[in-house]
């Protein structure tokens, strides 16, 4: 009995080593997000579609030189968090598997409306008219969720003061 138990134990451990995790192939130093956009909420400016979880490198090339750029090394060197500013538009990225992906897009001035025509300064009713029933609403924000993106209209006294597209990897 003891012999069988020992043999079974050794076999179990060896089998587990050979099989478990083999399919994952993931790198412990690079995870936490899910690259690749999957939402109808996409911001477009300069003729470029900027979707959360899209790879940043081709977007950065298409958008041209940002007015400001900031990068910071994450703790324990797990990659660079980057912030691209194009006037009133801020794009933040997260690293995954050696590439950067869009974490969020923030609109800070009225020069940049959403595809559906909502801009900073619009009122809450205009947001609801353009986007329909929100996923949730507080006095400070109206939020819509689709796929991997949360689109939020930040409100002050019923007026839109900020618009954010945020990846659920955030």
């Amino acid at each position: 009995m003891r012999k069988r138990a020992l043999t079974a134990l050794v076999c179990a451990v060896a089998l587990a080593c050979l099989s478990a995790g083999c399919g994952s192939g993931k790198d412990a130093a690079a995870d936490g997000g899910q690259a690749g956009p999957s939402s109808k909420y996409v911001f477009e400016f300069k003729g470029v579609e900027v979707a959360v979880n899209a790879e940043m490198a081709p977007l950065a090339e298409a958008l041209g030189e940002p007015s400001d750029y900031f990068e910071s090394e994450s703790c324990a060197f797990q990659g660079l968090d980057k912030v691209y500013t194009y006037g009133g538009v801020t794009v933040r990225t997260y690293p995954q598997d050696g590439k950067d992906y869009v974490l969020s897009v923030e609109l800070r001035d009225d020069a940049f409306p959403t595809r559906e025509g909502i801009y900073i300064g619009a009122d809450r009713d205009a947001v609801l008219e353009a986007y329909g029933q929100p996923a949730d609403e507080t006095g400070a924000a109206v939020r819509y969720v689709d796929g991997d993106c949360t689109l939020a209209f930040l409100l002050t006294d019923g007026t839109v003061t900020g618009i954010t597209y945020t990846s659920d990897a955030a």
Binding site: F70, T90, E106, T138, A140, A152, G162, T164
Partner: peptide, 11 residues
């Protein structure tokens, strides 16, 4: 030297 604008949060 400086930091970017803080992220705007809905909540």
């Amino acid at each position: 030297t400086g930091f970017p604008e803080p992220r705007m949060l809905a909540d």
